[in-house]
C-alpha cells in the first residue's frame, strides 16, 4: 500500500504540471499593469484592448473560414474513403496511404505542399490552407469513421439490398445513419484540429493573410503583453467548453446507439478511447 501511495507523487505531479501554467496565464490576463510577469491589480483592460485589435479579429475570421472549409472537405472525402476502405478493397497499401497525413510530421507535409503549390504556381492564400488542412483532417475523419465500420455488421445492408433497395438508397438510409455518430465525431475533430493548426498554415498561407495561431505566433515574437494572456484565456474557455460539451454529447450518443438494433456492443466503447487506441494501433502497423 505504501508503494501505491508513492505512485501518487507523479500522478498529482502530472496534473500540477499540466494546469499550473494555464492558471498563471489566466490570472495574468486580468493584470492592470503593463507587464505579463508582475501582477499589479485586477483589470479587464486587456480584454478591451483585444476586442479592438483588428489583426486578432481578422485572424479569427480567417481561422474559422479555413476550419469550416477544410472540415467540409475532410468530412465528405473521409467518410467516403472510410466506407470504401472497409467495404470495397483489401489493399493494405491504400490503408497505409490514407493514414499517412495523420502520421507524417506536419513539417514534412508542410514543405511538400509548399513545393507542390510552387510547381503548379498557385498563388498562396486561405484556399491553399483549406486544401492542406482538408488533407490531414481527412485522414482523421477516415480513421474515426472506420472505428464504427469495423465491428458493425453488414446484415442490415444485405437485408436492405435483398428487399430490393438500390445501392444508393441502402447507403443513404442504412449505412449513413449507422455511421452518423462517427461522422459527427470526425467532423468535430477535423474542425478543432484545423483551428489549432500552425505549422502547415504557416508554410502554405503566403504573405497576405494570417490565421489566429499565426497572429499569436507573431505577437509572441514581438514581445509579451497581457493582451496575449487575455486572448489565451478566451481560447481556453472556448476549447474547455467545447471539449466538455463534446464529452456530454458522445455520452448521450452512446446511450442512444445502445438502443439501436444491429449495433454490437463492442463497437460502442467510449468514443475517445476507441479512437485513440485505434489510431494508435494503425500508427503502429505502418
Amino acid at each position: 500500500m505504501r508503494r501505491a501511495r508513492l505512485l501518487y507523487v507523479p500522478f498529482w505531479g502530472t496534473y500540477v504540471f499540466l494546469y499550473l501554467p494555464i492558471a498563471v496565464l489566466v490570472v495574468m490576463s486580468f493584470n492592470s499593469g503593463e507587464s505579463a510577469y508582475t501582477y499589479e491589480g485586477f483589470s479587464l483592460k486587456w480584454y478591451g484592448e483585444l476586442a479592438r485589435d483588428e489583426r486578432v479579429l481578422d485572424g479569427l475570421v480567417n481561422t474559422l473560414i479555413v476550419a469550416a472549409g477544410s472540415t467540409v472537405i475532410a468530412t465528405v472525402l473521409g467518410t467516403l474513403l472510410a466506407v470504401g476502405l472497409a467495404r470495397h478493397t483489401r489493399s493494405r497499401t491504400l490503408d497505409a496511404i490514407a493514414l499517412m497525413p495523420a502520421v507524417l510530421p506536419d513539417l514534412v507535409l508542410a514543405i511538400g505542399l509548399l513545393l507542390f503549390y510552387g510547381v503548379i504556381q498557385l498563388t498562396l492564400g486561405l484556399y491553399s490552407v483549406v486544401l492542406a488542412h482538408g488533407l490531414f483532417s481527412m485522414a482523421f475523419v477516415a480513421a474515426v469513421v472506420r472505428t464504427r465500420l469495423t465491428g458493425s455488421d453488414t446484415s442490415l445492408e444485405e437485408a436492405s439490398r435483398d428487399l430490393g433497395a438500390g445501392p444508393v438508397q441502402t447507403f443513404l438510409r442504412i449505412t449513413l445513419p449507422q455511421l452518423m455518430p462517427g461522422i459527427v465525431a470526425g467532423a468535430l475533430l477535423a474542425f478543432t484540429l484545423s483551428l489549432d493548426e500552425f505549422v502547415i498554415a504557416f508554410f502554405t498561407i503566403g504573405n497576405t493573410e494570417q490565421t489566429l495561431p499565426i497572429v499569436i505566433y507573431s505577437m509572441i515574437r514581438f514581445g509579451v503583453t497581457p493582451e496575449i494572456n487575455a486572448l489565451a484565456a478566451i481560447l481556453l474557455l472556448v476549447s474547455f467548453t467545447a471539449v466538455i460539451a463534446g464529452q456530454r454529447l458522445t455520452k448521450i450518443g452512446e446511450r442512444e446507439s445502445n438502443r439501436t438494433p444491429g449495433a454490437p456492443r463492442e463497437a460502442i466503447k467510449v468514443q475517445g478511447e476507441a479512437d485513440s487506441t485505434d489510431v494508435g494501433e494503425k500508427r503502429a502497423e505502418n
Binding site: F198, N229, S239, A242, V243
Partner: peptide, 23 residues
C-alpha cells in the same frame, strides 16, 4: 481524470508554449 489529461491538449498549441515564457 482522463478528460483532465486531454483538456490542455485541446487548447492552442502556441499558447501552451507561451505560458512557459511567463513562468
Amino acid at each position: 481524470a482522463l478528460v483532465a489529461i486531454v483538456l490542455p491538449f485541446w487548447t492552442n498549441f502556441i499558447i501552451r508554449v507561451y505560458a512557459w515564457i511567463i513562468l
